[in-house]
C-alpha cells in the first residue's frame, strides 16, 4: 500500500459518501444519473467476485463491502425510495446501458491477462468503470444546472482514478513484477474522460461562478 493508493481509495470512498449523504439528507437525486449508479454497482459486483475466496487484507475486504453496499443502496434509493425516486429525471437520463456493457464485455473476452471467468469478469469491470461516468456527464450537460454536491461527487470520482495512476507509476518503479498494462490503459482512458469536466470545474471554481458545462 502506498500513499497514492490510500489517497485514491479515500477519495473514492469520500465521493460515494458525499453522494449517499446528498441523497439521504435532502432526499433528492436531482442531477444524478441512475444509469451510472447501476453501472457502478455492476463494476463492483464483477470486480469483487473474489471477496469471499481470496482474502488480501482486512482493509481490502472492508472497503469492498463498503463500495458494494453503498453502490447498491444508492441504486435502491433512486429506484425504490418513495421520496427520492420522485426527483429522478428519467426523461433526461436515457443513456443505454448496453451501449457500454456489451463493448466492454466483448473487449474483456478478447483482451485480458488470463482467459478465466474471474479474470475476464475482472477485466470487464475495469473497462466498464472507465466509461461508467458517461451517462452522468451526458446528464450534466443536458440538465446544465449542476448543484455543488453533484459537482464535487464527479470531481472526487475523477480525482480518485488520477491518484491511482500515480500509484501505478510508483508500483511500476518499486515492484519488479508489477505489470498490469490493461489496468493502466483503462485507468488513463477513464481519467481522460473527466478532463473536460475538470477544466470547467476549475474554471467555475476560479471565477467563483456556477459550474456550467457547454451544451
Amino acid at each position: 500500500m502506498n500513499i497514492f493508493r490510500l489517497a485514491g481509495d479515500m477519495t473514492h470512498l469520500f465521493s460515494v459518501l458525499v453522494l449517499l449523504l446528498k441523497i439521504h439528507t435532502i432526499k433528492s437525486c436531482a442531477g444524478i444519473s441512475l444509469k451510472t449508479q447501476e453501472l457502478y454497482a455492476l463494476v463492483f459486483t464483477t470486480r469483487y467476485l473474489d471477496i469471499f475466496t481470496d482474502f488480501i487484507s482486512l482493509y481490502n475486504t472492508v472497503m469492498k463491502l463498503i463500495f458494494l453496499g453503498s453502490s447498491f443502496s444508492i441504486v435502491w434509493y433512486i429506484r425504490r425510495h418513495k421520496i427520492v425516486r420522485r426527483s429522478y429525471d428519467k426523461d433526461q437520463d436515457t443513456f443505454r446501458h448496453y451501449f457500454l456493457v456489451i463493448p466492454c464485455l466483448v473487449l474483456a473476452v478478447f483482451i485480458n491477462h488470463k482467459f478465466t471467468f474471474k479474470e475476464v469478469m475482472w477485466t470487464f469491470s475495469l473497462y466498464l468503470e472507465a466509461v461508467a461516468i458517461l451517462p452522468q456527464l451526458v446528464l450534466l450537460q443536458r440538465t446544465r444546472n449542476i448543484d455543488n454536491l453533484t459537482g464535487q461527487y464527479v470531481f472526487l470520482l475523477g480525482a480518485y482514478r488520477a491518484l491511482y495512476i500515480l500509484n501505478w507509476i510508483y508500483r511500476h518503479f518499486t515492484e519488479p513484477h508489477y505489470v498490469h498494462w490493461i489496468t493502466w490503459i483503462a485507468g488513463v482512458v477513464q481519467t481522460l474522460l473527466y478532463a473536460d469536466f475538470f477544466y470547467y470545474y476549475f474554471q467555475s471554481w476560479k471565477n467563483n461562478e456556477k459550474l456550467q458545462l457547454p451544451a
Binding site: 493508493r5 481509495d9 473514492h12 473474489d50 481470496d54 488480501i56 481490502n60 472497503m63 469492498k64 463500495f67 491477462h113 488470463k114 479474470e119 475482472w122 491511482y164 500509484n167 513484477h177 508489477y178 505489470v179 498490469h180 489496468t183
Partner: peptide, 10 residues
C-alpha cells in the same frame, strides 16, 4: 515470473 493476476487493488 509472469504477470501476477492476483489483484490486490480495489
Amino acid at each position: 515470473v509472469g504477470e501476477s493476476t492476483e489483484h490486490d487493488e480495489l
